[in-house]
Nucleic acid binder design. Sequence first.
DNA 1: AGGTAAACCTGGACGC
DNA 2: TGCGTCCAGGTTTACC
Length: 275
Amino acid sequence: MPELPEVETTRQGLAPHLHGRQIAEVVLRRPDLRWPIPREIALQLPGERILAVQRRAKYLLLETAAGAAVVHLGMSGKLSVLPPSTPVRPHDHVDIRLLGRGGRVDAVLRFNDPRRFGCLLWQPLGTVHPLLQTLGPEPLSEAFNADYLFQRSRGRRAPVKTLLMDQRIVVGVGNIYATEALFAAGVSPARAAGRIGHVRYDRIAQEIQRILRKAIQRGGTTLRDFLAPDGVAGYFAQELSAYGRGGKPCQRCGRALRQTVIANRSTVWCVDCQR
DNA sequence: AGGTAAACCTGGACGC
DNA sequence: TGCGTCCAGGTTTACC
C-alpha cells in the first residue's frame, strides 16, 4: 500500500496519539508477518514510554529508552489507534496497549495486514537494524539531488524507473511516485539510467520532491484502502496523471498512455511526452 | 556486479 | 452464484 507519503501521513496521524504514552502490554495474535516478530517486542516494550514516532524510508520507528519498534506496512499494512474495546477483526495481528492517565489501558495501537508483507522488528537502543543499513538518502533531504542521481546512475543499463525504485539509491519512491515523477519530468521510464544526462536528472530530482511534498500535503494516495490512522483517506489520487491511467488520454498531448511492465511492475507513460 | 524474475500472501475485480 | 484468472501501493532472494 504505502510509499513515503502514505507512511509519513501515518506517522503524522499516529504521533499525537502515541507521544509520551506508556506501553502496558503487547498482544501478538500471529507470531510472524513477513518475518517472525522478535521476542524483544513483547519483552522489552511493556513499561516503556514512546518518546518519538519517526520515519526512515518506508519504515516507522516507535522509539523508547530501550530501543525502537520498527514497522513496515508492506503492501496492505495499516496502523490505527482505537478504543481498547474495539472488536478484533481478521488480520489484526498485533496490539500495543497504551496506558492513560488513570493507569488504565485507554487506547490500543493495532496493526492489521491482510497480505502480511509488512513486518514488526526490534532495534536495540544505539543500533541500526540491518534492514535500515543499506538504505539510500531520504528524497526530501539535501543529499538527494541531480549530482547524486547522475553519479549513481553512471554505467547502469537498467531502466531509470528501476533505479528510482531501488531503496539503496533513494528511499520512499515506489511504483506510483516513480511513475508520476517521470511523467512530470518528461522522461521515459524505460530509458537506461546511465544514458540520461545531468540536466534531466535535475528535473527528475525536483519532480520527485515536488510530487512527494504535494502528496504528503494531500494525506497520501488512497487507491483502494489506504487510510490514515484517523480513518481519513488520502486525496492525492485525484491528481495522478499517469499511474492507473493506462489507455486513457495523456493530459498534455491527448494521446493514449501506454501501459507495460518494467522490472515486474506495471508502468504507464506517454510515448510522445516522455523520451 | 548489475539485472531480471520469482517468491512471499490475501482479497477484490472481472469474465465466463 | 460460483469459479478461475489477473492484479495490487513492497522487498528479499535466487539465479543468469
